[in-house]
Each structure stands twice: as structure tokens, then as C-alpha cells.
């Protein structure tokens, strides 16, 4: 499917927002606040940090909305803005941490992961989410973003390629490698989640059907 054939459900609101209609943009904010906040949260692990970054993403999107030409879905473009905002933030934070962090702190973080996995009431949503986010945080940034966009946000490969501005093959490779690593990092959840609905299994293991 080419971008020209995509019917963007946000097109009219985007057009109005580009003409300065703040109400139209407010509707877009409410429509995507959960996705954008959760994307930022999955990439940063902190509610406050994610809140700030998601806000920043929307503010930047509003500033730049006149430059959005509709070459992709608005949603894809908004994800792209968000990923750029978070990446910029992580990059600057990483530089700061390199100056101040010590190996002891890194080890303490791993202990925290283990403690979370051993927490009673493990099925609790908050703990489960935190465990997943910790596992994601253990991935290199390029793998983390790709697998988050695919398996948490539900974007298809083409949208992810557009969002990250990389070839489809790169997206496929990153997602494959991310899942490989997460299989180890999420082992406790995978072991316990055998009965969970296999939402992605039919597609990934399509060959099993043949």
C-alpha cells in the first residue's frame, strides 16, 4: 500500500490544526495522549519523565504541524516526533550520567530488577509493566524503540520504517534481535505467561499452520 492510498482518519483535524485551530489540536492530543505517553514511558521508565517528554512531543508537533504534508499517517508522524524528542533527551541524559554514575549504581539497578521479579503479587499490572519496561531498558536504544513500536504500540513494519526513517529490512532485523534478547530478559514472565493469549504468535509462527 502506498502512502497515497492511505486514508488518514486524522486528516481533517490536522488540516484545521495547521490553520491554527487549537480546539482541533486538543482533540488530537486527547486521541493520542495514551499512546504517546506510553511510548515515552516505555523508552524512559519514568512517569514524570514520560509526562514531560510526551508534553514536549505534542508541543513540537503543534509547532511543526504546518510542515506535515500528509506523506504518512499523522499518527506515524507524531510517533516520529516523539521518538526524536525522547532520543534527544536520552542522549543528553546519557552524557550527563557518564559524567556522574558509578559501576556500583549500575549493579544496584540489576538488583532492583531481580527484586521486582521476586515481588509477591507479581501478576499485578504495575509490577508486570515495570518488569517489561526494565527488560526493554536493557536493550540498545535502536532495538528498544523498534520492538516497542511494533509489539507495544502495534505499528506495522512500514509505519515503523517511516517513523525511524530506516529500511524495512532494518526494522525486521531490529525487532527480531530485540525479541531474541528479551526472551532472556523476560524469562520469568514467559515462563509464567504460557497461558497468555498469543496475540503475535499466529503471525510470527505463520509457518506452523502450513
Amino acid at each position: 500500500m502506498t502512502p497515497d492510498t492511505i486514508l488518514d482518519p486524522d486528516a481533517e483535524l490536522v488540516r484545521q490544526a495547521a490553520q491554527g485551530d487549537r480546539h482541533a489540536f486538543d482533540v488530537l492530543v486527547r486521541r493520542y495522549e495514551s499512546q504517546i505517553f506510553n511510548l515515552a514511558r516505555a523508552m524512559t521508565r519514568g512517569d514524570d519523565e514520560a509526562d514531560d517528554l510526551a508534553q514536549e512531543a505534542f508541543v513540537r508537533a503543534y509547532r511543526a504541524i504546518r510542515s506535515f504534508r500528509g506523506d504518512s499517517l499523522f499518527r506515524t508522524w507524531l510517533y516520529q516526533v516523539t521518538v526524536n524528542v525522547v532520543r534527544t533527551h536520552l542522549s543528553s541524559r546519557s552524557r550527563w550520567r557518564r559524567l556522574w554514575s558509578t559501576p556500583v549504581e549500575a549493579g544496584a539497578d540489576e538488583d532492583g530488577d531481580a527484586a521486582a521479579l521476586a515481588t509477591p503479587g507479581f501478576e499485578d499490572d504495575v509490577v508486570r509493566r515495570d518488569t517489561i519496561d526494565r527488560a526493554l531498558a536493557g536493550l540498545p536504544e535502536d532495538l528498544r524503540v523498534a520492538v516497542t513500536l511494533r509489539d507495544i504500540q502495534g505499528l506495522d513494519y512500514r509505519e515503523i520504517a517511516e517513523t525511524l526513517q530506516v529500511p524495512m529490512g532494518t526494522v525486521e532485523s531490529r525487532i527480531f534481535r530485540a525479541r531474541q534478547r528479551l526472551r532472556t530478559l523476560l524469562a520469568p514472565l514467559l515462563g509464567r505467561g504460557a497461558g497468555a493469549p498469543a496475540l503475535a504468535r499466529p503471525a510470527v509462527a505463520a509457518g506452523d499452520e502450513g
Binding site: D151, L182, L186, L190, A198, R201, G207
Partner: peptide, 23 residues
């Protein structure tokens, strides 16, 4: 393939964090 599917399933079922009030 099974591992890929299992990981995807767990991630897909990740409970979404509630957007902070007043966002």
C-alpha cells in the same frame, strides 16, 4: 519462532500506564 511469538505476546499484553490526570 516460538520464542519470538512468546515475547511479542508478553509485550502486546503490557498493561498500559494511565495517562497522568490533566495531561
Amino acid at each position: 519462532a516460538a520464542g519470538q511469538g512468546d515475547v511479542a505476546s508478553v509485550l502486546h499484553a503490557r498493561p498500559a500506564a494511565a495517562v497522568p490526570p490533566g495531561f
